[in-house]
């Protein structure tokens, strides 16, 4: 399912650049599958080292906990491939949760529809500003981060009012499961698969890569640059809102204190997954590996009883640094060849 963007395999290549093509291929493979390889290694270590890690329960815990970050990172992958960044998603996640819990008194549809509407609209504003005024995504989405946080505080009276989920059907979305796997995991899996298909096999997906590769060239080649950018930020907003709603359903209330810094975790997962922060290349498969990797590390640290869970941040940070250095080295390798 991974788009074959970074590959090159020799079929009819002239003999004299076979060597560089081989390097290309290996570099591409490491860039795309590096996170997966690390994930597999870490999981194997965990299986041996932590007896509890093996239990089905624990696997379920990891997956359920990873579902909301996965949704956010999915949107972030699209944004980063276009060469942008979306800092507002952490705030939108919290806002989405509070809105969902508040709206659940009006029924299931409202509980899902209100956060999506509001977060989607903020994503739309982000997208329109970025696409039409060519303002830096960093600044635009930083403004949205602050705005959404303010909105959430206003609704929750500075966080002193906690809305409780008052709709059983909505609550079951967060707690129920199918075939032993939580609904939100199924939702994340479905959206990831749709995301992969869209990115690899639709015109929109190609436009996302093209814009990140070269915005000017894309415009000259007839890519709808503005529309694509707007759509990408709308997707990111919608997914963050959805992630918040799903989380509220699981917790049974809109929690106002969690979620700060979620945007940075998402960016970390995307970059660890091999997507270039400069845009133009990357994959959702890599992001999935990145999200799971961060989740597994968290889980392992929780199992080491006497280790402060903040160490997870230190380890994630280290991973991120290693990946960025590795990316730089790999790119240089490719250029020299």
């Amino acid at each position: 399912m991974t788009p074959a963007l970074l590959t090159g395999s020799p079929t009819t290549a002239p003999a004299d650049n076979g060597g560089s093509e081989r390097t290309d291929r290996i570099v591409g493979l490491v860039q795309r599958q590096g996170a997966l390889a690390v994930l597999v290694t870490v999981v194997l270590v965990a299986l041996v080292a932590f007896p509890d890690f093996r239990s089905l329960d624990n696997t379920g815990t990891i997956l359920v906990a990873a579902a909301p970050p996965m949704l956010i990172a999915l949107g972030m992958t699209l944004v980063i491939i276009t060469g942008g960044i979306d800092l507002s998603v952490g705030s939108l996640y919290v806002l989405g949760g509070v809105l969902a819990a508040w709206a659940s008194r009006y029924g299931l549809v409202a509980a899902l529809f209100v956060p999506l509407l509001v977060c989607g609209a903020i994503g739309l504003v982000n997208g329109v500003l970025i696409a039409y005024t060519r303002m830096a995504p960093f600044i635009v989405t930083l403004a949205a981060l602050l705005g959404a946080r303010g909105l959430m505080r206003a609704i929750s009276d500075e966080g002193s009012t906690t809305y409780v989920v008052e709709n059983d059907a909505f609550g079951r979305l967060g707690t129920g499961s199918l075939l032993g796997v939580g609904y939100q995991v199924w939702l994340a899996v479905a959206l990831v698969l749709i995301g992969m298909l869209v990115l690899a096999r639709t015109g929109f997906g190609q436009s996302v890569y093209a814009i990140g590769g070269s915005e000017d060239a894309s415009a000259l080649m007839g890519v709808a640059v503005r529309r694509t950018k707007i759509l990408v930020y709308v997707c990111s907003g919608l997914l963050a809102g959805l992630a918040g709603a799903v989380n509220a359903a699981r917790l049974g209330s809109g929690v106002t204190v969690l979620g700060a810094g979620m945007e940075l975790d998402a960016i970390a997962a995307v970059v660890i997954g091999g997507t270039l922060l400069t845009g133009g290349a990357g994959s959702i498969a890599g992001t999935v590996a990145g999200v799971l990797l961060l989740g597994v590390i968290q889980n392992m640290i929780n199992q080491v009883g006497d280790l402060n869970s903040n160490w997870q941040q230190v380890i994630s940070g280290t991973f991120l640094a290693v990946v960025v250095v590795a990316q730089t080295v790999l790119n240089r390798l490719r250029r020299i060849s």
Partner: peptide, 24 residues
Amino acid sequence: NLIPLMSVAQNLFLGREPRNRLGL
């Protein structure tokens, strides 16, 4: 003025990619 990070084929067909029956 093409996209260096995309494949040769993708560059050639960007915006006019051949579709299958499902529109993909």
